[in-house]
Amino acid sequence: MHFRQNVPLVDGERRIMVCFVGSPDDPGYDDAVEHATEAILAANREAGWKKKEKRHKRGDFPAVACGISFGKGQPEPMQLGGERQEMMKNLLAMDSFRRIAGFQSAALRTWFPRCYEEARRRKAQLLELRPNLRLNFDNSVYLCTTINFGPSTWTHIHTDSKNDPSLPCAITSGGKYNWKLGGHLILWDFNVIFEFPPGTTILLSSAILRHSNIPVAKGETRISVTQYTAGSIHRWLQYGGRTEEEFEKADPEAYLKEMSEHRAGRWMESLARYSTFEELRSSA
């Protein structure tokens, strides 16, 4: 079933901060989401998860990230590692996941065009500096993907503080559940609850907006696929392809100027990339 109605949420300045974008007008897309969901559930059954893998701050279910990240002591942006990466690579290599990723990226371009262009620019800049890095998908501006394996995924109230706040992440839901009764997305800062049918996508800045899910019923299944980019990669690029410590050591004068003149205004620069509904309507 297709859900093609778009539902944007705006802030006090009429900037679009969240958008429920449904699913594309493409019968094959539903099949792709169903195929990806079945592959995720099959991988979940075969994974033999350790206890620590099934409980984290977002909820009590296995979740694995794959792609390019930067943090946790890494000296520069790098490929994520770990024993689950082979499983992730096998899943993301399937055409069904590529179709989901491509739709998520296209939806970002439609509803957040300036955010999309900045993400595209940064991706190109990163690959120019580190051509050895591998993208999950060639049809997406995002650098990292997380799969929530369920089989009954629902999240606690949280923000994803390490994600880039200037780039809305994309979340696509899958599974077999009654979406009128469960699986809803709660946006606490907007006091809004979205119905979240299987196969639909929501774009939101998960780094700054508190969100969670309503559980699905016993015996139902729900998974999700999320794309995003780590905020620390933006800073690494801003500092000339180096860490803040390396930047300060190599060029103290430029470092002080960056901290005093530019850093304070970066939040407003990020907000300026969010379009108003009127801007999008006039450009259309």
Rank of each mutant, 00 (worst) to 15 (best):
E86Y: 06
L127D: 01
F61W: 14
T110K: 15
F70K: 15
M78P: 00
R114I: 12
E86T: 12
E128M: 11
E83K: 09
A107Q: 07
L91S: 03
P75V: 07
P62T: 10
V141G: 01
K57A: 09
S69F: 09
N148S: 08
G82E: 04
Y142T: 06
E53N: 07
P131W: 07
K50D: 13
A93E: 08
R84E: 02
C115P: 07
R114P: 02
N136T: 14
L129D: 02
C115Q: 14
R58D: 01
D60C: 06
L80W: 04
Y116E: 09
R58Y: 08
P75K: 09
A106M: 12
K54I: 03
L126I: 11
T110N: 13
D138I: 05
P62D: 03
E76D: 06
K72A: 10
R99W: 00
A101I: 00
E118T: 15
N136R: 11
E53C: 04
V64S: 04
S140C: 12
N90M: 08
L126V: 11
E83A: 12
F61K: 09
F70H: 12
I100E: 00
K57G: 05
A65P: 03
W111G: 06
L80C: 04
R122W: 06
G71Q: 05
I68L: 09
F137M: 06
L108C: 14
K50I: 01
A101P: 00
L135M: 12
N148W: 09
C144V: 06
E53Q: 07
A106E: 14
D60K: 05
K54H: 04
F112S: 14
Q125N: 13
D60F: 04
Q85S: 03
G102P: 00
P113T: 12
S96W: 00
I68F: 05
R58T: 05
Y142F: 15
I147E: 00
Q74F: 10
C115V: 12
V64N: 02
A93Q: 13
L126Q: 05
C144M: 10
A124T: 10
R114M: 13
P62E: 04
M88A: 11
C144D: 01
R134T: 15
F61Y: 14
K50L: 10
L91M: 05
F70A: 08
P62F: 03
G82L: 10
Y142M: 13
Q79E: 10
R120M: 09
K50C: 03
C144R: 04
E128F: 06
G81S: 09
